[in-house]
Amino acid sequence: MLEEVERWLSERSWSVTDRPLHRLLAAKSATGQSVSVVLPALNEEETVGDIVAAIRRDLVRRAPLVDEIVVVDSGSTDRTSEVAAAAGARVVHRDTILPRLPAVPGKGEVLWRSLLVTDGDIVCFVDADLREFSSDFVSGIVGPLLTDPDVQLVKAMYDRPLGTAAGQGGRVTELVARPLLNMHWPQLAGFVQPLGGEYAARRSLLEQLPFPVGYGVELGMLVDALHLVGLDSLAQVDVGVRIHRHQDGRALGRMAAAIYRTAQLRLARGHLVRPALTQFERTGDGFEPRTYSVDTEERPPMAEIAEYQARRVA
């Protein structure tokens, strides 16, 4: 590990207990910063309501840390929108945001569009499939942004159990993302959960970043933020344990391919190959190939979008 990263680990890795809630509220009042929480959601009716309710109870009613909770529904076919609204979130459908630009499937697409329907100086992203959710996930990663003006982006770090096996979650992280970061961007080798979906950043940073539309968004954002603002502007906070729905092996393969492609684009922006991933599924006639495109379209920095510029002027 680089000496720079060892220093960063000691100076920019914290615990949620390092910043008590009363300190965060005082910092928020002193700086006048506002906080938006965004949950990208697709068919998450079983979990999204509990997450929204916990944030609203702990960080809106009991302690006014969060100014808005927005669930961006990316085309759910279940009751995700109704459950989220009943729990107290403002629900916006992905396709109603920036309608002149047809939406494409993908988590990064939803996060990118969320900048147009939120107002917070600090934007906090939380995955909508978390179970046994604690509002510490939000207060933990928002905290350094409220108290330290030099910090621009904060990732949550946590244990990720796989069933009853402690520390065995995050398979794509360990098999794909961590090797890529250590080999090509060793300054980022200190991040415990580089692909984690819980992170917060200043709007002034997010609006300058391109957003991979799919699963590569977390890796792409981390790499691009490093180049834009430097390692010391990035941080991580230990929030405990993350429990969520795990995907099957084929889905993880597609995720891994998209992440690899996101890294590839950043290593060689002129790369024009449109790669595909072929996987196999047993049928009555043997193994049948299934081929998926893993080309990762990216959205430009939001600051370049006319509608966003107009909103800032208004």
Score class of each variant (00 low, 15 high):
13 S>W: 13
15 S>P: 05
16 V>N: 13
19 R>S: 00
24 L>A: 03
28 K>E: 06
34 S>K: 13
36 S>H: 02
38 V>T: 02
38 V>K: 01
41 A>L: 10
46 E>I: 00
46 E>C: 01
47 T>R: 12
62 R>H: 14
62 R>S: 15
65 L>V: 04
67 D>G: 04
67 D>V: 02
69 I>R: 05
74 S>A: 10
76 S>E: 00
80 T>H: 01
83 V>R: 12
84 A>R: 13
100 R>C: 03
101 L>I: 06
102 P>Q: 02
105 P>L: 09
107 K>V: 08
109 E>F: 04
113 R>C: 04
118 T>I: 06
120 G>W: 09
122 I>D: 07
124 C>K: 05
125 F>P: 08
125 F>C: 05
128 A>H: 04
129 D>P: 07
134 S>C: 00
136 D>R: 10
138 V>R: 07
154 V>I: 04
167 G>A: 03
169 G>D: 10
169 G>V: 04
171 R>M: 15
172 V>Y: 08
172 V>I: 11
174 E>D: 12
174 E>W: 13
175 L>C: 02
177 A>I: 12
178 R>M: 15
182 N>P: 00
186 P>C: 06
190 G>R: 13
195 L>G: 13
199 Y>W: 15
200 A>R: 14
202 R>I: 08
204 S>D: 13
209 L>I: 13
211 F>Y: 15
216 G>E: 02
221 M>Q: 14
222 L>D: 11
223 V>E: 11
229 V>R: 13
232 D>C: 07
232 D>S: 12
235 A>W: 06
236 Q>N: 03
238 D>S: 09
242 R>Y: 07
244 H>E: 06
244 H>F: 09
246 H>P: 08
246 H>M: 02
254 R>P: 07
256 A>H: 07
261 R>W: 13
261 R>E: 15
262 T>H: 02
264 Q>P: 03
270 G>I: 00
275 P>H: 05
276 A>E: 15
279 Q>N: 03
284 G>M: 06
287 F>A: 04
289 P>F: 06
290 R>I: 01
291 T>P: 09
296 T>L: 11
297 E>S: 10
301 P>Q: 04
302 M>F: 10
305 I>L: 11
307 E>L: 11
309 Q>T: 00
314 A>G: 14
